[in-house]
Design a binder for these strands. Structure first.
Lengths: 339, 339
DNA sequence: AGCCTTGCCTAAATCGTTTTAGTTGGATAA
DNA sequence: TTATCCAACTAAAACGATTTAGGCAAGGCT
């Protein structure tokens, strides 16, 4: 159905090798021949077959992405979707397509590594996945180049958001506004992102000489409005309610809005909250959410760049960790306390 | 690096053909041999190479998806993301991986069709794309099986949300609550979805004998909070303001919330609005948005099923249009008018 | 004239599979 | 006994590319 190199060669009256060499920029081809082949190939609408090329060269120009969540795919989370989008754009600009790696393809269960081998991906980016699973370890320790997002494996390339600074900025900002009773509803514990933020929270609280009462740091869930609402209500019902509550992420803001409403409290005045992520949506709301902006676009782009770098220059030293700076967005949800 | 069929054959002391036949379920293999080959293959961790297989069989078990938007990718829109997610799950369950089709891969510009050929996709699903472009026409008219979402090409397989019913349900519901001045801020005009809804709007208004004043139907943008806010304020500033405003989609609800706030109007009491999509987020807000639920999950799943059906049974008659029913979600944003 | 470059091209092997057309050797039939 | 058949295997040709090794003129040098 498609036009093959053989068709082009025949039409040109030349050998297959010559046509191939034209397309691969070999020097031992005369200018005349090159022009002619190019013209005829274009006229015929010839497109080299990626499968055949990949089979021979062992380069598929395909990158795997690991974007699976327990429940639903990372596709549905605004932050991960934005990152994937940036990753994809950058990869495409460099000539790579992307393939989602999973472990249920058709009847047969595959490990992530098997799926990667099956599709001959040149490299794989691990973003939204349980980094502590055996499968992931197997993949990372294989010969397939990897890049990770927000989780470090030895000195392998990793793009990480500066979570320590991010959470500290929030605590510091809250403290600077006069808050002393600061609570933290954090995300699920089985991720290094969460752990990093929790540690940062305690450290910055300590730096400001602020106590963290029992129950002020409580496990919630990312992207879960109802859960956040419930936990926030519980915090507000305490005899010693916090004046400021840090949320798992921006999506949780909607839960906070409702909790505040139910209690008749005005956000940014009677009760202060802050999110984490800096997604577009919460920035066009009133009151505008105070949050930490994570540069998902830059993270996705750099993850792609660094992965491709590994793929194309496997013999240079791996480039380790890249920390992506975060930025405090001063919205309208944090009250200045009169002291 | 990887284990090939040759390695397995050697280890088994058999020919390559025999091993291949075992994996492809050929009948002329003895049970003993089958068992032995399977065991050794498993022990060695053998995984057939998809590239080689695809090259030979002309089946890549890869489906293309066309998910490009003018500005940003459809990945960022909750509705399309949900649909893609369902499509992906269904495809994976049937043994297919997915590849994003675009026209800028590396240095060379490709048409969508060229990209599909380059990657040897077995079929392609067109979801979030300009259906009126020449490129898309070229693709749809090629020999590559296609399935479309929300846009019909002749009798080719298409999964469409019942937009006519959806918009009519909203108008009908509004009318039944006593609304007579109903405005419609619709999405961008260059899509059949939008056109269908507009037509449906006028038709149902007429059916209820309701007039549509000049300027009551106005072009907004999907997923654009600011734009919706602006247009809604303009509508409310009229000498004959509507009592009910239909929005382009659920995401626009946030714009409507702000507009109502600015005017000091209570949503669902002083002013009524309705969305379109039924995404999770707007259903966990107060007031809960009245909207039309589009079954993105079912749409994605069925698009995958029907595309794969075309791929696997190319000689049966194409199955035309499947209409996915919509459902009115009665939220809290529509007031009952005392008459 | 003979030899060596150099420039330009081609033959053929190869990547890892699938699949068609045999090839065995033993059992059954005539 | 010999022809026939069958079950179970294998050889080899593809699929569409890349790449190594080599061929063949034409021109330059002794």
């Amino acid at each position: 159905m498609s036009i093959t190199i053989k068709d082009v060669a025949k039409r040109c009256g030349m050998s297959i090798s010559t046509v191939s060499k034209v397309f691969n920029g070999y020097p031992d081809i005369s200018e005349d021949t090159r022009q002619q082949v190019m013209r005829i190939a274009r006229d015929m609408g010839y497109q080299p077959n990626a499968l055949a090329r990949a089979l021979k060269t062992n380069r598929s120009y395909n990158l795997g992405v690991l974007f699976v969540d327990d429940n639903t795919s990372g596709l549905m989370h605004p932050f991960f979707a934005a990152m994937l989008n940036a990753f994809k754009s950058e990869a495409e600009a460099k000539g790579y397509d992307i393939t989602f790696i999973n472990h249920k393809i058709g009847a047969s269960d595959m490990t992530f590594l098997e799926h990667c081998r099956y599709r001959n991906v040149d490299g794989v980016c691990l973003a939204c996945v349980d980094f502590y699973s055996a499968e992931v370890a197997e993949l990372v320790n294989s010969d397939i180049p990897t890049a990770t997002v927000d989780h470090v494996f030895n000195n392998r390339p990793c793009v990480a958001s500066d979570n320590v600074s991010g959470i500290r900025m929030l605590v510091n900002y809250a403290a600077s506004l006069g808050h002393r009773r600061i609570a933290y509803i954090h995300g699920q514990r089985n991720s290094s992102v969460t752990e990093t933020r929790i540690t940062g929270f305690y450290r910055e609280m300590q730096a400001h000489g602020l106590a963290v009462p029992e129950g002020y740091v409580v496990e919630g869930r990312y992207d879960d409005i109802m859960c956040t609402r419930r936990l926030m209500l519980a915090l507000l019902d305490r005899v010693d309610p916090p004046t400021c509550i840090l949320l798992p992420d921006d999506a949780s803001y909607f839960g906070a809005m409702e909790a505040a409403n139910e209690k008749g409290l005005r956000l940014g005045q009677d009760i202060s909250v802050a999110g984490y992520d800096g997604i577009r949506l919460t920035q066009s709301l009133h009151p505008k959410l105070t949050t930490v902006f994570q540069d998902s676009e830059s993270m996705g782009r750099q993850a792609a760049q660094r992965l491709i770098d590994r793929v194309e220059h496997p013999n240079t030293a791996p480039n380790g960790l890249v920390m992506i700076p975060v930025r405090l967005i001063e919205g309208e949800t944090m009250a200045r306390l009169i002291q």
